[in-house]
Nucleic acid binder design. Structure first.
Lengths: 191, 191
DNA sequence: TATCCGATGACATTGAGTGTCATCACTAGG
DNA sequence: CCTAGTGATGACACTCAATGTCATCGGATA
């Protein structure tokens, strides 16, 4: 057996989610999270840069998955198609954890600081997508707007998925959201 | 003459921008900002909820302007047209301060915490726009996606405006961004 | 004149986040 | 078997953002 219990970051992550549910984010101190995980406050900050980040342990890997899938897309696809290819790949990472996703969502929605951090996560993904498009030769401005459209569809679909039953297909929801977005953006600007 | 120097919030805002430029956000302490404004740290926090918020003094009024303009739009306009009506109204508030906008942008871009707060501001505007659309009878999901599209165009246009010469017309840039977004979203999803 | 109000200062306190050094099981080289 | 090194952790002190509380005092009001 190792010198320390395994998966310190995972223990911290789980303890944090539990405590944020029990007492709320504001009324939970980092020292308490660490204690429940059998560690100290100082060690918490060796695994996570701050008290908010502990709720988003997957975001780094999601970026990789999306960017990789985009890189694998055939060269003749439209920018939007490439972006959706990326998000479709991300679906498979997220798909398993419906219950988990609901718990995290409830905690996040209850606190402005956590909502703010979640926005940063969406924006970071969007920035990675923008960059990936640029590397394919898409003009920066088009890349930014396409990434923003994809992010909007992703957020919309994810919201429906979390609110609805676990059996829903996130791929299908994503296609629906894109279709809705298309018709919304195609609407006339003047009479 | 009054008992205190007038416009405490404005003095704090200006002092903060100066200090963030001189030393950077991280290395500026709230007590220093307050001192330069002739006030105390405690009074800073009576005018702004935190050290980041002091860089976004106009955002609350911008929301009002946008929502009011949307409410004034004729009932037969498409959701996207209504949203653009709102942002067009916001242009006139922002248009004057090109130099100021550049200074703030430079400070914000140099610090992750400020970028995060800026995202929250864009998101708050977007949420207000979504709500205004819902009150017009637009379905929530369509409202969200349309608001997201408008926000993307707004950010894109604003970026171009700040980077370019002061003489540029932000209204025109906004129309350009919408046109770009339209063609990007209209692209085919499959071969 | 007496009273209240509203912005501010003064002071104390909490808790997030960081720097620094010690600890100690495990590992590799001799 | 011994020894030096490594890496995750604990212990401790410290800074600073943010908040609660009470005192102050010029001006407005009755």
């Amino acid at each position: 057996m190792g010198r320390w219990m395994p998966d310190a970051a995972g223990r911290l992550s789980r303890a944090a989610l539990e405590l944020y549910e029990e007492r709320g984010f504001e009324d939970t101190m980092v020292a308490e999270i660490a204690e429940r995980a059998g560690l100290t406050k100082r060690t918490f900050f060796r695994h996570f840069p701050d008290k908010r980040e502990v709720l988003f342990p997957l975001s780094a890997r999601i970026h990789e998955v999306i960017v990789d899938a985009m890189a694998a897309a055939p060269a003749d696809r439209s920018p939007l198609a490439v972006v959706m290819e990326g998000y479709d790949a991300a679906v498979d990472m997220v798909n398993k954890g419906h219950a988990q996703a609901r718990r995290r969502r409830a905690v996040i929605m209850a606190n402005p600081e956590l909502l703010e951090r979640q926005l940063t996560k969406f924006a970071a993904t969007s920035a990675a997508v923008t960059e990936a498009l640029c590397e394919r030769g898409v003009a920066r401005r088009v890349a930014f707007l396409t990434a923003a459209a994809g992010a909007a569809a992703w957020r919309d679909a994810r919201e429906c998925w979390i609110e609805g039953p676990e059996t829903q297909d996130l791929h299908a929801l994503l296609r629906e959201s894109v279709a809705e977005l298309r018709s919304a953006v195609a609407a006339p600007l003047a009479r």
